[in-house]
Nucleic acid binder design. Structure first.
Lengths: 317, 317
DNA sequence: TTACTTAATGAGCAATTATTCGTTAACTAT
DNA sequence: ATAGTTAACGAATAATTGCTCATTAAGTAA
C-alpha cells in the first residue's frame, strides 16, 4: 500500500530538487548527495524518480532540416493545414514515443490562449501519452470534452480517460462521455445518444475549437479488439469489408470511406465531419498504423497530423 | 577557421538527433552510435554538443512547496504582483543559474500572446541568460526594445546585446538603444537623448507592456566597474553616497532612493517610474546582490521578482 | 607542392551512473 | 502485539559516460 500522500509529496519535492540539481545545475549525483545530505544511491534514485515521473521534461529545440522538409511535403501532398514530423527511434515500439511530446506542446499552445477554447480529445495511447506530458497549468476558462465513450465493455468507467487527466492538469471543467463505446444495437445507440446530458456533450464536442485524435489500425491485433470493444468476428467482418483503419471506433477503407453496417452503426462516439472542416489533429506513427494513417488522410478525416520521420517517409512513397 | 555553415548546420542536426535519442528516447550512447552509424565517442560528443548548445532544454515541472511558500511571502512582504522562486545550487557561482530558465519561461508566456506586445529589456548576465533560453518562435507582431545603451565605453557596439539575440530568436523587430551608457557630461547626455530616433526608442521603452531588468550590486567589483562603464573613483563616490545597488546604471541607496549627482546624472538609460506603475520584473539572485535586491524592493523599482531560494530566504530575514 | 593550422577521430582509462541483492524500517491487517 | 507486506536503504558490482591524448584528415597560406 502507498504511504500517506504527504510523504509522497515531500518525496516528489526531493526528487524535483535532485532532478534540478542534476539536469539544470549540472551536478553529479555525488554532489547532490552531499548537498541534500543523503547517500549517493538515494540521490540516484531521486533523479531516476524525477525523470520517471516526468517532473523533469526534456524538450528538443532545434529544427531538424529533414523533419521540416518531410512535414512540408506531407502538408502539400495531403492538403493539410498543419503537420509536424518528429524523429524516429527505430528500436522502440512505444507507439507514442516522440509524437506525444510534440502533441503535448501543441496542446499547451492552445491552452495558453486567454480566450476560452473547447478542446476535444479521443482516446488511445498517443493521446494519453500527450496529455501526460502537458505541464500543470491553471486555465479554468477552457473546456475539455471527450469524443468517445469512456465506459469499458464490462461497464467500468475508465479513470485514466485522457479527459480526466487533462482536466486535472490544466484545472479546466471536463465533459466526459459516460457511455459504452459500442451499443448492443442500433436502437440502443440511438437511445443512449438521445439522452439530454449526453446529447449536450456531443454537441459541445462537435463545436470544439480543436480536436486531437488517435488513428487506429485494423490489423489482427488492434486495441479495439484487445481492449474488448469488438469481437474477433466483428473485426474479421470489418476487415472483409475492406477496413483499413478507424477513428473514434469508426472503421473506414483505404480510401477513407466509412464502412457501412457492422459495428460502425452501433458506435456512440461523436460523428466527425468528413471532410474535416475544423481543426482536427491526428496523432499516430509506426509501421502498424501506416495503412490506417494513409487511409485517414485520403478520407480527409484530419486537417493536421503529428507523426514521425519513418512514417512520414513511408506516407510519401 | 570555421568550416562552412552548411557543415555546422548538419552537425547541429546530428547533435539534435543524438540528443533526442538520448534524452527523449532514452537510448544509451552505444545504441545511438549504432543507429547513427558513428563511433561511441562521436555519439558522446554529439550529445554533449546538443546540451552545450542548448538544443535540448530541461524543464522542471513540479511545484516545490518550499519555493512556492517563499514566493508567496516575498510577494506579501514587498507588495509585489509577481514573484517566482527557484532552487539554489549552493556551490555554483553562476549568477543566472536557475533564474534564467524561469525568466525565459515567463518571457515565452508573453511572446505566446496573439495581441502585439512591447517587451523592454535591460542588460546583465541574468537577462542575457534568460534570452538565451527562449526557444525559437515566430512572433513578428511583438516588439523588443532596449532600456539601456548598447555602446561599450570604447564605442564598440555590443553584438550580444539581449535585444539583438531575442529579436533573432522570436523574429520580432528590435529597437536597440545605440548610445553610450554614460555620457561624459550632463549636457552631452541631454543632447544624445534628444535625438529623434533615440527619443522615439525611449518613448517606446517607457510604454512597454513588460520589462525584464537585472539588479546590479555596488560592492567593490560590480559589472559596471569591471566592464569599464564607471571608474574606480566614481564607484567609490557612489559607495560613499550610500550606494546599495543599481538598476539600468542608476545607483540607489538602501532605501531605494536615487543617489543624486555622480554618474547618475549622466546615464542615458530609460528612466523607470518610481514606484513602478507597470510590470517590471527584476531578475537577480545571490549573496553579492542581496543588498541591492533588498534596496530595489524597498524603493519599489519592480513589480515582480525572479530569484532563488537562498536569496528569498535572506530577503525575508 | 609544402609547411602549417585546425578539427575530428578512436583508443584507453577515469569517473560517474545504474542495477542487483540482502537487510532494515515502517506500515497494515488480524 | 504479531505476522505479513512494502518501501527504503547501503554495499557491491556492472554498465555507461566523460576525458585525455596521440593520430589522422582536411583545409590554408606561402
Amino acid at each position: 500500500m502507498a504511504r500517506n500522500t504527504d510523504n509522497d509529496r515531500s518525496r516528489l519535492d526531493d526528487a524535483a530538487r535532485a532532478g534540478w540539481l542534476y539536469f539544470i545545475a549540472g551536478n553529479s549525483q555525488d554532489e547532490i548527495a552531499k548537498k541534500m545530505d543523503i547517500s549517493r544511491q538515494s540521490a540516484q534514485r531521486l533523479v531516476a524518480l524525477a525523470t520517471r515521473e516526468k517532473l523533469v521534461k526534456f524538450k528538443l529545440d532545434h529544427p531538424i532540416a529533414r523533419c521540416m522538409e518531410l512535414a512540408l511535403r506531407i502538408k502539400d501532398r495531403y492538403g493539410l493545414d498543419y503537420c509536424e514530423v518528429t524523429l524516429t527511434d527505430p528500436s522502440s515500439d512505444d507507439p507514442a514515443l516522440g509524437i506525444a511530446e510534440v502533441a503535448a506542446a501543441e496542446m499547451e499552445k492552445y491552452f495558453k490562449s486567454d480566450t476560452p477554447i473547447v478542446m476535444a480529445l479521443g482516446t488511445g495511447r498517443e493521446v494519453r501519452g500527450a496529455v501526460d506530458q502537458v505541464p500543470k497549468m491553471y486555465c479554468p476558462q477552457h473546456r475539455v470534452v471527450s469524443l468517445i465513450g469512456s465506459l469499458a465493455p464490462d461497464g467500468s468507467a475508465n479513470i485514466n480517460d485522457p479527459i480526466t487527466v487533462i482536466s486535472d492538469t490544466i484545472h479546466a471543467p471536463r465533459h466526459p462521455l459516460a457511455v459504452p463505446v459500442i451499443a448492443s444495437s442500433i436502437a440502443e445507440r440511438d437511445i443512449i445518444c438521445a439522452q439530454i446530458p449526453i446529447r449536450r456533450n456531443i454537441d459541445l464536442a462537435q463545436s470544439a475549437d480543436i480536436a486531437f485524435i488517435g488513428i487506429g489500425e485494423l490489423n489482427d491485433t488492434p486495441p479495439l479488439l484487445t481492449d474488448g470493444f469488438i469481437t474477433w468476428k466483428e473485426l474479421k467482418s470489418l476487415q472483409a469489408a475492406g477496413g483499413a483503419g478507424e477513428i473514434l471506433g469508426r472503421a473506414f477503407n483505404d480510401k477513407g470511406e466509412l464502412i457501412s453496417g457492422e459495428t460502425n452503426d452501433r458506435i456512440t462516439s461523436v460523428t466527425l465531419p468528413q471532410p474535416a472542416n475544423r481543426p482536427i489533429i491526428g496523432v499516430a506513427r509506426g509501421p502498424d498504423k501506416l495503412r490506417a494513417i494513409s487511409a485517414a488522410l485520403a478520407g480527409r478525416w484530419v486537417t493536421g497530423l503529428i507523426t514521425d520521420e519513418w512514417t512520414a517517409e513511408a506516407l510519401l512513397r
